[in-house]
Design a binder for these strands. Structure first.
Lengths: 112, 112
DNA sequence: CTCATTTGTTCGACAAAATAGAAACTAATA
DNA sequence: TATTAGTTTCTATTTTGTCGAACAAATGAG
């Protein structure tokens, strides 16, 4: 099946990583996700997705240095790769094109 | 997993159904898909997705009348429902908002 | 110095979606 | 009426999406 596409959730998470611009890790991504999309998911969910994105080469991660804050394990910070932003652009472009092709009445009230 | 979101592929297929404007069924949707996205999938793949979309209430189907063509079983024609077009708009709107938040340098050459 | 607490990460499991391939139907026509 | 082209449906497998809990490290309190 050799898929290379971005899944639905993967895409949103990738977008969040890009938005967080280097400050993204399990916790911040979950928060941003909730804040911007209203979607609530567990860390595990986010982290698994992050790992899968990394396997696909869409993000890169590294352990952050020791924090100054109280307690806490070292963060694994994620950032988007060139491949990742290409994938994002590609899929967005494709959808944009498809939207152009929609018959105008599709979104009139009471279309069904 | 109690999902209500549109999956990645589901969304593209839903878009195709809307574009085909009442003429969409297994074969035409696969063709349109290939034509517009370059993505090649089997009828079975498309049909399964169509059925799932119908279960979710995003499309509606009915059997077409007897064809005049050489043979062939009656077609099951699909069209998008109001709920379907709402879902489409909602997810597109959300992504549009997220794109606004992307830091400008995300798409500069050599960003990684 | 050691240990409970805090803040994170990772693992294991499983449901749903994506996908392929082939079987089963159906109706027009030779 | 047997053939056959055009479609739908069934079955099986891989990926994604999702959760819950186990595990790990840094710090401050005693």
């Amino acid at each position: 099946m050799r898929r290379t596409y971005l899944g639905e959730f993967e895409e949103v998470v990738l977008l969040m990583v890009a938005i967080l611009d280097g400050e993204g890790y399990g916790v911040t991504v979950s928060q941003a996700l909730e804040e911007h999309t209203g979607r609530i998911v567990t860390f595990g969910t986010v982290h698994n997705t992050l790992i899968r994105l990394e396997e696909k080469g869409f993000v890169q991660s590294e352990l952050g240095g020791a924090t100054a804050e109280r307690g806490g394990r070292r963060k694994r910070l994620f950032r988007i790769t060139a491949l990742g932003s290409e994938a994002l652009q590609e899929i967005q472009q494709l959808r944009q094109n498809l939207w152009q092709l929609l018959p105008p009445h599709t979104f009139r009230l009471g279309s069904v």
